[in-house]
Design a binder for these strands. Sequence first.
DNA 1: TTTTAAAAGATAGCATTACTATCATAAATA
DNA 2: TATTTATGATAGTAATGCTATCTTTTAAAA
Lengths: 225, 225
Amino acid sequence: MKLQLQIKMNEELYLRNPEHTELGRNIIKHSIQLISQNGFEAFTFKKLAEDIGTTEAGIYRYFENKHRLLIYIISWYWGWLEYQISFQTNNVKDPVVKLKKIIKLLATTVEDDGKTIYVNESLLHQIVISEGSKAYLTKQVGEDNKHHFFKPYKDLCAVIGNIILESSPKYKYPKSLATTIIEMAHFQNFFMKNLPSLTDFGKNKAESEIILFLNDLVFSSIKKN
Amino acid sequence: MKLQLQIKMNEELYLRNPEHTELGRNIIKHSIQLISQNGFEAFTFKKLAEDIGTTEAGIYRYFENKHRLLIYIISWYWGWLEYQISFQTNNVKDPVVKLKKIIKLLATTVEDDGKTIYVNESLLHQIVISEGSKAYLTKQVGEDNKHHFFKPYKDLCAVIGNIILESSPKYKYPKSLATTIIEMAHFQNFFMKNLPSLTDFGKNKAESEIILFLNDLVFSSIKKN
DNA sequence: TTTTAAAAGATAGCATTACTATCATAAATA
DNA sequence: TATTTATGATAGTAATGCTATCTTTTAAAA
């Protein structure tokens, strides 16, 4: 039996549900390819349409603009990651072990598991690293937040924050530490690959070193209390 | 005697040195105002020209494009901040005290001290929080790095990293911890103001709480070794 | 099986953005 | 006074970020 994973998306993010049609799924698939290839700034609906073999107007029937589309795929990633976390930490009692698993999931390049046909999680992970913060670092963040566009990210932070509290009930900054873990898992990765002198992960450039750094950071913070 | 502070800028960042002319200084001044007001995405050379009372072509004589201009003002900020740090930690022996002062400087809204006539450091600080990472989160990061555009940021990280090592010579991740402090000082501030449920700085929304969080994070990491 | 509705394709158009080029004028310097 | 240098004024162009309309295809309902 082949299971297929479905992530429930905020309906206000799109005009027409891209999961329901071939064209819609192509929009998601090719967006991920194009954005990871050329970056979000160079990404346009015109180029996307050409890549798919449809027209610009066709894309606009699904997404109001490219920023919404970015939020869509990033949100999809957070939803997917939360599922991965709940799956991988299922039946694990020790919150310390859970946290270590989460850090590993966050900091490790994911492999495309084929459970989601039109989403390449590995490319998507790269997008989240390079473009993820652009989803909210805008002047419309307040408006977008009213539409609950950041709920998947918040949910993930809440999950991680709660495990931090499980491990150390008196720790004062579980949510801020959670966002720190998430953001730093990605920023250190970006720095390692692009501005390596900003990190301590010299020549080898292995994600495993980021994991060690984050483990050290997190567990020295929460253990001492 | 009134001292005037000059930050030495990378000459490849501009076509004509904006500090040398009235128009150039206006470009810097009004860029900071416009970007902090409307965000970097909505910022165009046309609007900037109108705001100043000059023409678009006039701006292009100083900066190749708006991305270079962003890097210019952000770099200026890092240079300025490094000066502030060296000034405020001068004659301080204890690296722990130094680090605390640095964290405070990073996390606190700066007041415009008038030492730099055409730069409003307070607005610039807001820009660095909201737009700072966009300077390097691009596909051209490698190219830009070859031009040493990120040197001021790297220098600052090196300074902080070295103080971390002074305080704890065996700590393994001084540079990564330095970037974590810098980035989190800004991200937690952004979250606090725009997506508060991602932080633990509830109703009061005081920068002092971010300082407490960062102090806790940093000193639990480096003390235990 | 027809009818009808929904989705996609094809084109057009338009304001704004991100530039480049040219020519004239004012101000500073030699 | 001559001449460089900076600025102003204007034009133009390809690409971007949309909206609108009309036709054809596809698929669901009657």
